[in-house]
């Protein structure tokens, strides 16, 4: 399952279609809060303790997060997800300029952002590079 969070339904839809072609299921949300709520109800089902470690298991294989979201922004969301899921591959997408992204705070370790409009191959490369 791949999470797509973007408040622009057109982009969310395109990303979801593309993931479908790659053979992934997607869960699409218009805001950070909605994804967090979804994780709350779906994440617990699959959470388990591994060797006494308190890391919850993640129902997601990866997440594509828009930065400019109503409410909690994409960077804050990435920080929250990183806290919970150490190995979750994430990529941030944004129409903001480099300096504008920086002004919003630092990105979690191992998370990078790409600017809209982007090449799907580039996004794919970043998202799945750790798996190759």
């Amino acid at each position: 399952m791949i999470a797509v969070v973007d408040d622009d339904p057109e982009i969310a839809d395109a990303l979801s279609t593309w993931m479908g072609i790659l053979g992934f299921e997607t869960t699409v949300h218009g805001s950070a809060e909605k994804l967090l709520a979804w994780l709350q109800s779906n994440g617990n089902k699959t959470s388990r303790r591994v060797k006494g470690d308190n890391v919850s298991s993640c129902p997601l294989k990866a997440a594509i997060l828009d930065i400019n979201l109503p409410g909690i922004n994409g960077i804050e969301l990435a920080h929250k997800l990183r806290k919970q899921y150490r190995d979750l591959p994430m990529v941030l997408i944004t129409a903001l300029r480099h300096d504008e992204v920086q002004s919003l705070g630092s990105l979690p370790l191992g998370v990078s952002f790409i600017r809209k409009p982007f090449d799907l191959d580039v996004l794919e490369g970043i998202l799945f590079q750790s798996k190759d």
Binding site: D13, W18, K116, P117, F118, L120
Partner: peptide
């Protein structure tokens, strides 16, 4: 406005690339 116009452009680019794959 720059951000604004990048939204539909992103959707156009993504959909075109998907179409190529299809």
């Amino acid at each position: 406005l720059g951000h604004e116009i990048n939204q539909p452009l992103t959707a156009i680019l993504a959909n075109t690339q998907i179409a190529k794959r299809v």
